[in-house]
Nucleic acid binder design. Structure first.
Length: 897
RNA sequence: GCCGAAGUGGCGGAACUGGCAGACGCGCACGACUCAAAAUCGUGUUCCCUCCGGGAAUGUGGGUUCGAUUCCCACCUUCGGCACCA
C-alpha cells in the first residue's frame, strides 16, 4: 500500500487513544500511532475544552480536513480473497494429511470434546452448525494449548423418520438413512471442523447395534431391565409407546410428532432408572449449567415424608405416602385412585353401582381432561371405612380422579384443613374438616376459610399437642421429624421418600431400531439371546403396513427361533429399543468404532474417558442427558465403565430462530440453508458470524444482514496481511509499545473467553485488534519485530475460529511452517500488556466531570493531588474544601463537594 | 400455581472485583471513489433541551453506597420447564 491514510478513526474511545482535556495533562494525547494531534470530533463534542482552546475545530471543519487527506490515501481494496478456493484447498490437504486424527499420546494431557451427534434427517441445518462450529473452535483452542484433543462425530441413525419416509416413498429405511448420511457427511466436512472421521460411528450399523443389544443384556443381568404390564403412553400417529420424558407440554403430546398421546395397557420393557434416582440428584462432580441441574432435579421430583399404614375395617393394610405426617390427626377421610386394587373390596353393595359408574366415567376421560388442574374435583363414596392408626378414628373411603394411581401408592389420607385439594373436596361433599395446625400466636381458630398450609403449632393431635412445626420439609422440620420417630416406634409408619421419576419405558413397536435381544419360550419365559449370537440383525425383507405397525411382527420367519434354555421353538421380541438407548453410549463407541471384542477398547477408554466438554441443546435435559447418566452408573455397577459420570462439563447453546423470530421449520418456510451461505460467504465467515452474533447460550433470530459484518472483517484481515506496504519501519517507540500492549491485552481476553465459551467477545476483541493494527500500520509499524509478533499472534488467535483463512495467511503469506493448527497458543506477556499511563475519570458528586492521565503506578496521594489540580474540579469546588475524596486505584477519583 | 432464566440504543450485543453505560458489529444518514452500481474508504448515529452548554437514561418503584446494568427489597413483562405429585 503506497500511501498510508493520514487519518484517525475519531469515533473510537478505545484505550489506545486518549484525548485528555484538562489543562494539566493536556499534552498527553495518544493514538496508537503516537503522533496524531488533531482534536477529534467526538472528543471535542464530548469534553470540550474549558480552557480557551480554540473552538474552530468544528465538526464540519474537521470533517473537511479529513476529506482532504482521504483523497491522497489509497483505500484498502482487495479482490484476491476467494474463500471458496482457499477453504476447499485446505480441507483437502488437512484430510490427506490426517491433520485431525486423534490417537493416544501418553505424553500429552487428553481432552475429549464432544458435540451431540446429529440425527440423520437428511440435511444439516442451522440447528447443527450453531452448536458444532463454536465447539470446533474451542476444541481447536484446546489443541493449540497442548491437549491431545478428540473431537469425534457420528450419526444417530435409527428412528421413526426413516420408517415414515419408507412408508411414504417406498424407500427402505436403510437406504434413506445411508443416503442422508452421505449428504450430511459432505456438509459436515464443508464446516472445516477438526472431526476425526476415522472414529465415525453410525448407530444403525450392525457393528454398532450389536453392542446396543449387548448393553441391554447387561442391564437385564443387573436386574435393571424388566417387563411389566402397565398403562403406558401411546402415540397414535407414531404407532408406538413412548417414554414419559417423550410426552411433553400440558396437552401431553408426542415429543416427535406433536400428536396427543393416549393411554394403553401393554406389557412393555422398562429400565429401572428409579434405582438411581438419588444418585442422579447428585451433581457434585459435574460442571453443568444450573438450568440443567434444576430441570433434572425437578424431573426426578424427590419428596421427603413418611409412609403410613392405614387399615380397612376388614384389616387390609392401606399404605399411603405423605409429606405432612404432622397432620395425620387431621385426616378425616381417605381417597383412592379409581383404579386402586382395594376399591372393589371396600365398596359396599349400596355404593357399588355409583362406584362402577364413576370408574367407567373416569376411564372414558383422557389424561388431559382428567389431569387438568382447574377442573372441579369429583368423587364417589365407596361405603367403606378405614381406621386412622394414630387416633383410631373411623374415616370414610372415597374414590376421586384427583388421586393418581401413577404417583405414590394411589391412595391418600385427606387432611382438608391443611391441603388445598382436600379442602376443596371436603367442602364440595360436605366432609368434616379438623384443624390440627394453628398459626403460632393465634388463639384457637374458628372455621377455616381455606386450607392452612403454613407453619404453626400442632393441636388436636394427642401426644403432639403444642409441638411446633416450621415450613421445612422432611427431617429438617423438627415437628415432622418427631412424628416420624413416633410412627416408627409405634410400628405404624416410617420415614419415606417418593419420586416423580418413572422407570424408562424402552419398547418401541417399530422396525427401524435396535432389536430387543430377548426370546420368549412357553416353558422358560423370557431369556436373553446368548451373547455369542449377537447381533440380532434386522431383516431387510420386510413389508410396510400403511398403519405403521411394526413389520417385524408380521415377518413370516424372523421371530421364530429356539429357546436358549430348553432348545425348543420360541419367539423373539419384535419390539425395538428407544433410540435414546443408542445415544446413551455413542461417546463410548467413538473410542473404537470397529472394535469387536467389546463395545469399546478398554485401552482407549482409560485414556480418553470421561468426556471433558459436552456441547448440545438443553432440550435433552430430561431425556438424553438423564438417560446417559443412568446408563453410565448402571454400567459402572456392572463393572464395565469407570467413574461416576460420563460427561464432566456441559454447555448448552441457545436456538437460532428464523428471521421471523419463530422456530425454523419447513412448513413455516423460514429455514436458513447453511449450504447456500457457505457458497456465498465461505465457511469461515459463517462460522465466525455464528460465534459473533449471539450470546452462544442464548441464540436468537437469524439476521441475514449480520453476516456481512464478519465477511467484511475477514476481507479486512486478508487486505491487511496481503497488501504490500511500502511504509518503512518508522514507527515511534510509543507506537510499537502500544501495539504490543494491545496484542497482549487481546490475547489475554481471547484466552479467557475461549475457556468460558464466550465466543462473541472473542470475535469482537479480534475485530478491535485489527482496527488497532490498521492504525499501527499507518504509523509505520510494518517491518518492525513488534509488527511481526502481532501478525503471528493474530493468526494464531484467528486459527480456531476461521481455520482456513488463518492457514492460508500463515502458510502462504507469512511463509510460516504448516500447519498453523499444530502451533502452540501464544503466551501472554504480562509486562507488555500492562498500561503505563492510565486515564482516570473524575466524578464530582457522582457525575464524571473531567479526566486525568497518570502513571499506572501513581500513589493515591499523587492521584488525589492531580485530581484536585484540575481546573474543572476547582470550578466545582469554588474555593471550598471537598467533603470527601475517594481514590479507587486504577479506576477513578470520586469527589464529594 | 410452583421452579428456573432473562429484561441495556432502530437491531444483535459489551461492560467478568460496585467505578467512564452503549465496546464490537448490523442497519441507517452524509461524504469520497465510480458514467453508474457493487465493493471499498471516511464521518456521524441512546434520548431530550434554549444545542453555548446541560439534563435524563440499563423493565418499574424503593433501599444500601461517594458511586449501582452489577448488591438488597417489592413489583411488571417475556421465555423455558413442571403441573391435582399427596
Amino acid at each position: 500500500m503506497a500511501t498510508p491514510k493520514k487519518k484517525t478513526n475519531t469515533k473510537k474511545k478505545s484505550t489506545v487513544k486518549k484525548t485528555v482535556k484538562t489543562t494539566k495533562t493536556k499534552a498527553v494525547k495518544k493514538t496508537i500511532a503516537g503522533k496524531k494531534t488533531s482534536v477529534t470530533v467526538k472528543a471535542a463534542k464530548k469534553a470540550a475544552p474549558k480552557t480557551g482552546t480554540s473552538k474552530t475545530t468544528t465538526k464540519r471543519a474537521s470533517a473537511k480536513s479529513k476529506t482532504v487527506s482521504t483523497k491522497t490515501a489509497k483505500p484498502v481494496r482487495d479482490i484476491s480473497y476467494d474463500p471458496k478456493a482457499i477453504e476447499q484447498k485446505w480441507q483437502a490437504k488437512w484430510e490427506a494429511d490426517k491433520l485431525y486424527r486423534a490417537v493416544i499420546d501418553y505424553s500429552k494431557p487428553k481432552h475429549y470434546a464432544l458435540t451431540m451427534l446429529p440425527y440423520t434427517s437428511g440435511d444439516l441445518h442451522f440447528g447443527h452448525w450453531y452448536p458444532m462450529a463454536p465447539s470446533d473452535a474451542r476444541a481447536r483452542f484446546k489443541r493449540m494449548n497442548g491437549y491431545n484433543v478428540l473431537f469425534p462425530i457420528g450419526f444417530d441413525a435409527f428412528g421413526l423418520p426413516a420408517e415414515n419416509a419408507a412408508i411414504k416413498r417406498g424407500i427402505h429405511p436403510k437406504e434413506w438413512t445411508y443416503k442422508n448420511i452421505e449428504n450430511m457427511r459432505r456438509q459436515l466436512k464443508s464446516m472445516g471442523a477438526m472431526f476425526d472421521w476415522e472414529r465415525e460411528a453410525i448407530t444403525a450399523d450392525p457393528e454398532y447395534y450389536k453392542w446396543t443389544e449387548w448393553f441391554f443384556i447387561q442391564l437385564y443381568k443387573q436386574g435393571l431391565a424388566y417387563r411389566k404390564m402397565s398403562a403406558v403412553d401411546w402415540c397414535p400417529s407414531c404407532n408406538t409407546t413412548l417414554a414419559r420424558e417423550q410426552v411433553v407440554g400440558e396437552n401431553r403430546v408426542c415429543e416427535r410428532c406433536g400428536t396427543p398421546v393416549i393411554k394403553k395397557n401393554l406389557e412393555q420393557w422398562f429400565f429401572k432408572t428409579t434405582k438411581y434416582a438419588d444418585e442422579l440428584l447428585n451433581f457434585d462432580e459435574l460442571d453443568w449449567p444450573e438450568r440443567v441441574k434444576v430441570l433434572q432435579t425437578n424431573w426426578i421430583g424427590r419428596s421427603e415424608g413418611a409412609s403410613v399404614i392405614f387399615r380397612t375395617e376388614a384389616g387390609d393394610p392401606i399404605e399411603i405416602f405423605t409429606t405432612r405426617p404432622d397432620t395425620l390427626w387431621g385426616a378425616t377421610f381417605m381417597v383412592f385412585a379409581p383404579e386402586h386394587p382395594l376399591v372393589d373390596k371396600v365398596t359396599t353393595p349400596e355404593q357399588r353401582e355409583a362406584v362402577e359408574a364413576y370408574r367407567a366415567q373416569v376411564a372414558r376421560e383422557s389424561d388431559i381432561e382428567r389431569e387438568a388442574v382447574d377442573k372441579e374435583k369429583t368423587g364417589v363414596f365407596t361405603g367403606g371405612y378405614a381406621i386412622n392408626p394414630v387416633n383410631h378414628a373411623r374415616i370414610p373411603i372415597w374414590i376421586a380422579d384427583y388421586v393418581l394411581m401413577s404417583y405414590g401408592t394411589g391412595a391418600i389420607m385427606a387432611v382438608p384443613a391443611h391441603d388445598e385439594r382436600d379442602f376443596e373436596f371436603a367442602r364440595k361433599y360436605d366432609l368434616p374438616i379438623v384443624q390440627v395446625i394453628k398459626p403460632e400466636g393465634e388463639s384457637e381458630a374458628g372455621e377455616l376459610k381455606a386450607a392452612y398450609v403454613g407453619p404453626g403449632v400442632m393441636i388436636n393431635s394427642g401426644p403432639f399437642d403444642g409441638t411446633k412445626v416450621n415450613a421445612e420439609k422432611g427431617r429438617k422440620n423438627p415437628g415432622i421429624s418427631a412424628v416420624i420417630d413416633w410412627l416408627e416406634e409405634m410400628g405404624i409408619g416410617k420415614e419415606a421418600v417418593n419420586y416423580r421419576y418413572r422407570d424408562w419405558l424402552i419398547s418401541r413397536q417399530r422396525y427401524w431400531g435396535a432389536p430387543i435381544p430377548m426370546i420368549y419360550c412357553e416353558k422358560d419365559g423370557w431369556n436373553p439371546v446368548p451373547e455369542d449370537q449377537l447381533p440380532v440383525l434386522l431383516p431387510d425383507d420386510v413389508e410396510w403396513k400403511p398403519t405403521g405397525e411394526s413389520p417385524l411382527k408380521f415377518h413370516p420367519t424372523w421371530k421364530n427361533t429356539t429357546c436358549p434354555v430348553c432348545g425348543e421353538p420360541a419367539v423373539r421380541e419384535t419390539d425395538t429399543m428407544d433410540t435414546f438407548m443408542c445415544s446413551s453410549w455413542y461417546h463410548l463407541r467413538y473410542l473404537s468404532p470397529h472394535y469387536d471384542k467389546g463395545p469399546f477398547d478398554p485401552v482407549e477408554y482409560d485414556y480418553w474417558m470421561p468426556v471433558d466438554t459436552y456441547t448440545g441443546g438443553i432440550e435433552h435435559a430430561t431425556m438424553h442427558l438423564l438417560y446417559t447418566r443412568f446408563f453410565h452408573k448402571a454400567m459402572r455397577d456392572a463393572g464395565i465403565v469407570k467413574g461416576n459420570e460420563p460427561m464432566i462439563q456441559l454447555r448448552n447453546q441457545g436456538i437460532i430462530l428464523g428471521e421471523d423470530n419463530e422456530k425454523m421449520s419447513k412448513s413455516r418456510g423460514n429455514v436458513v440453508a447453511p449450504d447456500e451461505l457457505v457458497e456465498k460467504y465461505g465457511t469461515d465467515a459463517l462460522r465466525t458470524y455464528l460465534m459473533f452474533a449471539y450470546r452462544w447460550e442464548e441464540g436468537g433470530p437469524w439476521n441475514p444482514q449480520g453476516i456481512d459484518g464478519t465477511a467484511r472483517w475477514l476481507r479486512r484481515i486478508w487486505a491487511l496481511f496481503t497488501d504490500a506496504s511500502d511504509s518503512p519501519a518508522s514507527a515511534s517507540v510509543e507506537t510499537k509499545r502500544t501495539l504490543r500492549r494491545r496484542v497482549h491485552q487481546t490475547l489475554k481476553r481471547v484466552t479467557r473467553d475461549f475457556e468460558n465459551f464466550e465466543f462473541n467477545t472473542i470475535i469482537s476483541s479480534l475485530m478491535e485488534l485489527l482496527n488497532d493494527m490498521y492504525k499501527a500500520r499507518e504509523a509505520g509499524a510494518v517491518g518492525t519485530p513488534e509488527w511481526d509478533e502481532a501478525t503471528e499472534i493474530y493468526l494464531k488467535m484467528l486459527a480456531p475460529v476461521a481455520p482456513h483463512i488463518a492457514e492460508e495467511l500463515w502458510t502462504n503469506q507469512l511463509g510460516k511452517p504448516y500447519s498453523i493448527h499444530q502451533q502452540s497458543w501464544p503466551q501472554v506477556d504480562e509486562e507488555a500488556a500492562r498500561e503505563d499511563m492510565i486515564e482516570l475519570p473524575i466524578q464530582i458528586n457522582g457525575k464524571v466531570r473531567d479526566r486525568i492521565t497518570v502513571p499506572a503506578g501513581a500513589s493515591e496521594e499523587e492521584i488525589k493531588a492531580a485530581a484536585l489540580a484540575s481546573e474543572i474540579v476547582k470550578k466545582y469546588l469554588d474555593g471550598k474544601e471537598p467533603k470527601k475524596v475517594i481514590v479507587a486505584k486504577g479506576r477513578l477519583v470520586s469527589i464529594v463537594v
